[in-house]
Design a protein around this nucleic acid. Structure first.
Lengths: 348, 348
DNA sequence: CTGAAAGCGCTTACAG
DNA sequence: CTGAAAGCGCTTACAG
């Protein structure tokens, strides 16, 4: 009932291996027989079965996508977008992406994504912070890996990264150009390298001020916990007790910015009139906040799509040279940082 | 190198067909040989290959998940959550879900999700409004279907639905109990049956007022366009021109509520002091809005998980009796509707 | 350039 | 209750 390669071969009057050859775009086929076969394929509406192909080639044409379970409980569907980006890009190349999540306390001996066990993926992309143990496990299996928005210094792995440093640098520079000199760094969680990089960008921008340098450890609030609105709130409250208080807040991401603005409001400070705020990530609802949140846009879908392209490339070409791709960001000026209205205060 | 069923058979000293039998939980196996085989499986860390299994059984153990492309451009990652719910539930049952999207002007003759062409899924769940043509196509292929948050009256299909009617009824009843009598229905798009049901719930609640009935067509603003913040804004502006103006706004979803509140604010109306607002869906950022948005919670992940369970059940049991499952909602009172402070105005 | 044959790793009648 | 054999639908050397 379902049409197979045999049917095509019969109809085209050739051997099934010949059909297979044209199916796989091999060279050295008479143009005539090629056309004949293509015609038969079209007429029969033939599509090779994945599982048959998979069995014969020992390839699944699937990509695994693993992320940390805890990211699902977060306010922001950040990695979900990365996943979507990867998923749709993969489809264009004939791959499907299978989703799985792992806990922080993941133990490869006890639980593992099924697609790893069944060798049902040709490669895997790992998004965000994941336990070392799973990276180690997958490498042992000799399955290619691409990290997205994460890196581990002691592992040489392919990675797609956000240009956090420059993103933060631009945002903070913007605040400086607005005339701000006491700029706080809010709610960073030291656990993630991305956060560290944002902090570095912050420092770099402040450093440019030179003698005007007000880089001051007290203006920085780094935390143990994962960034969240609550952390942003607490962090801001603490920073607000400084005398003189900061005039601008650069938050480590938009979720933190929410808590920050809430704290400011609770202290009867107006945004942006009394204090400027810039977030990071550019999540959905930033645009709808009051005031609309200025932020550093991260191209989440693009991160995922790039990771997909990269893992597919590795799978198909057995590339061995490790390569990191850094995706740029974009400063999005909305209202929470006061726009350009104080531009004339620029005073380098 | 990779361990196969043969290796297990050899190690356990049985035929590979026997191994296959215990793998597939068939009856009638000597407990002793079963144990022996299980032991060998564990020792060798054997896992059957999906593609081999798939080829032999002609099952893919995959589920397709199709949604309308346009939903990706929306403010709210509603269906993304449904997908996530389906995906993780499926994993528990040994299935993976493959994602695809279709356009409104989809034509099965021109483009089709690959997994349909390659018969790489055993069933598919369709989320939200999808073109009739794809439903028709899939049915022709004799692939089981489950709809989520959608239904087409002329197709008898399995479906997982939101209890929109009751959700809307409860929300509007709450407003009525707060003393509101002029309650507007904002920003509905007539295209989706869910919206129609929310409207019905609204009417039902208003209807209970009986002689106090202020059900008034003018208080209702139904639109052609898909619901969005912009629609909410426009719709609210229009409703605000009524004299006397509405004292409460029931918006057709949270995205619309955003625009609604923006319009109210622009008209110098305070929420909830001057006017109450209740949304629908309970999206992420509702909690972080100012004021935090009261809404009707839809259990998005649960919708997806239920759909996954259902399609798997159908796949495995060849169920033929059509069944619709309606998932309840939950009224979430936050600040935008004024809490219970006017409860004493209750006056049936 | 094309065909016949073996094999990928399972499952499923069919005997026994 | 268990084993030998065929078959699922492809791909890939290997001849020719």
């Amino acid at each position: 009932m379902t049409v197979t390669i045999k049917d095509v071969a019969r109809r085209a009057g050739v051997a099934q291996s010949t059909v297979s050859l044209v199916l796989n775009q091999k060279e050295n086929i008479h143009e005539q027989t090629r056309l004949k076969i293509l015609k038969a394929i079209k007429e029969l509406n033939y599509h090779p079965r994945r599982s048959a192909r998979g069995l014969a080639t020992r390839k699944s044409n699937n990509i695994g996508f693993i992320l940390n379970t805890q990211f699902f409980t977060q306010t922001e569907p950040f990695y979900t977008k990365v996943f979507l980006g990867a998923s749709f890009e993969a489809i264009k190349h004939g791959y499907y992406v299978l989703l799985a999540s792992v806990d922080d306390n993941f133990d490869p001996k006890k639980s593992l994504p099924n697609f790893l066990l069944e060798r049902h993926v040709d490669g895997v992309v790992l998004a965000g912070r994941v336990p070392d143990s799973i990276i180690t496990y997958i490498r042992q299996q000799d399955i290619p890996i691409v990290l997205v928005d994460y890196r581990v210094d002691h592992f040489a792995t392919h990675a797609v990264l956000i240009d956090n440093l420059n993103g933060a640098y631009e945002a903070v520079s913007h605040l400086i150009n607005q005339g701000h000199r006491r700029i706080a760094f809010v709610g960073g969680s030291c656990h993630h390298p991305s956060i560290q990089e944002r902090y570095d960008g912050y420092k770099k921008a402040i450093g440019v001020l030179g003698s005007h340098n007000e880089l001051n450890d007290k203006l920085v609030d780094l935390r143990e916990e994962e960034s969240s609105p609550q952390i942003g709130f607490d962090s801001t409250k603490k920073l607000l007790s400084l005398k003189p208080r900061p005039t601008a807040f650069f938050t480590v991401n938009d979720a933190v910015a929410i808590g920050c603005i809430k704290a400011l409001r609770q202290s009867s400070l107006r945004v942006p009139e009394d204090v400027a705020v810039i977030g990071f990530d550019d999540v959905e609802w930033g645009l709808h906040m009051d005031p609309p949140l200025s932020t550093v846009r991260v191209f989440k879908e693009e991160l995922g799509a790039t990771a997909a392209r990269k893992i597919i490339h590795i799978i198909q070409n057995k590339t061995t040279v490790i390569e990191k791709t850094i995706i740029g960001t974009e400063l999005v000026i909305r209202e929470s940082c006061g726009g350009m209205r104080t531009k004339d205060k620029y005073e380098f």
